[in-house]
């Protein structure tokens, strides 16, 4: 048998998977936190920064995806996909990203003061009014769409039956966990660096949840480790490509999971001082790990056939 990987879904798609999942969850959490007035606080600034950051992440991710296409002019066909091909994840994902971004933006707009040079824009006025009137709808819509976006990328990768690394229930779980974890890391960075509001409880909650998520992610990765190690030759090939590569092992697993986990654990158990520096270091490592994870997931997918590529 021959074993080989793929190169069609290259770093462009890896970036999208990273930014897409993360950006979507950033928007979901931002919106949620604001809508529910979590910890009784205003959180508006965080929400605005969060949603705009998420919006930018999703935009860049989508741009990567668009750029990656072979026939750009035909892209509009995907919008009809949910009617023609309801069994295709990408069809749903396209709309969930679009709606998540639009609804999230519409939810956010009323809270952003209109700059003078845009005073004339009726459309802007309209959206601001709409976003105020239907804030609840927009909020829950955004949250739902964004969570869907974060989950569907994992479902998509799972739907490719030939690749043992991907075709298992662990992938959607892994991607969702990772998306949420990286989103929280982004939000923490925003909180400490940009927003700097007096929302320490929120920050601690984020850090706590993130600790749980990273811990879960370590367990999931460990699950993959043994699953592939004892798996078919296909799985073993993927195993070799992952664990034989220092970037995965040290860049992702150690630096992107273990180290942040330990830092976070230290912080939430008060063994370590909860200072901005550590938080940002941990968050940055998580972000780096989040990208490496997606990149290597794509890289290490293996096909097993009685003929070569």
């Amino acid at each position: 048998m021959f074993y080989f990987g793929q190169e069609q879904w290259n770093w462009l798609v890896a970036v999208y998977l990273f930014l897409g999942g993360m950006g979507a969850m950033v928007m979901a959490i931002s919106t949620l936190v604001h809508r529910l007035k979590v910890f009784g606080q205003d959180n508006t600034l965080l929400m605005i920064w969060g949603n705009l950051t998420g919006f930018v992440m999703l935009s860049v991710g989508s741009a990567m995806l668009f750029y990656h296409l072979l026939d750009h002019l035909a892209v509009w066909h995907v919008l009809l996909g949910v009617f023609n091909k309801p069994d295709a994840w990408i069809a749903w994902g396209t709309w969930s990203i679009i709606f998540g971004m639009i609804w999230g933006l519409v939810y956010t707009l009323p809270h952003i003061p209109t700059p003078k040079f845009l005073g004339w824009c009726q459309l802007l006025k309209f959206f601001k009014w709409f976003g105020t009137k239907y804030a609840g709808l927009m909020a829950w819509g955004t949250v739902f769409m964004s969570v869907f976006t974060a989950v569907y990328t994992g479902m998509l990768l799972q739907s490719f039956p030939a690749v043992e690394l991907w075709h298992n229930p662990g992938i959607p779980v892994l991607f969702t966990v990772s998306a949420t974890s990286t989103a929280l890391a982004s939000l923490l960075i925003l909180q400490y660096v940009v927003v700097r509001a007096d929302d320490h409880e929120l920050r601690h909650r984020f850090e706590l949840i993130d600790t749980w998520l990273i811990g879960s992610e370590i367990i999931i990765i460990a699950g993959f480790f043994f699953y592939l190690l004892n798996g078919t030759l296909n799985g073993q090939a993927s195993h070799e490509l992952l664990w034989g590569d220092p970037i995965w092992t040290y860049g992702f697993f150690v630096a992107g999971l273990i180290v942040p986990f330990l830092i976070n654990l230290g912080m939430v158990t008060h063994k370590l001082p909860s200072n901005g520096f550590l938080v940002i270091v941990s968050a940055t490592l998580i972000l780096m790990g989040g990208y490496i994870l997606r990149h290597y997931m794509l890289l290490a997918g293996i096909w097993e056939l009685p003929y070569p590529k």
């Binding site: 080989f4 072979l70 039956p161 030939a162 056939l305």
Partner: peptide, 20 residues
């Protein structure tokens, strides 16, 4: 005309029979 070339199908095919 309809294919936009996202190449998901090339990954889904277990036989590596599609190309961009």
């Amino acid at each position: 005309d309809m294919c936009m070339g996202c190449q998901a199908c090339t990954l889904a095919c277990p036989y590596d029979e599609r190309y961009a």
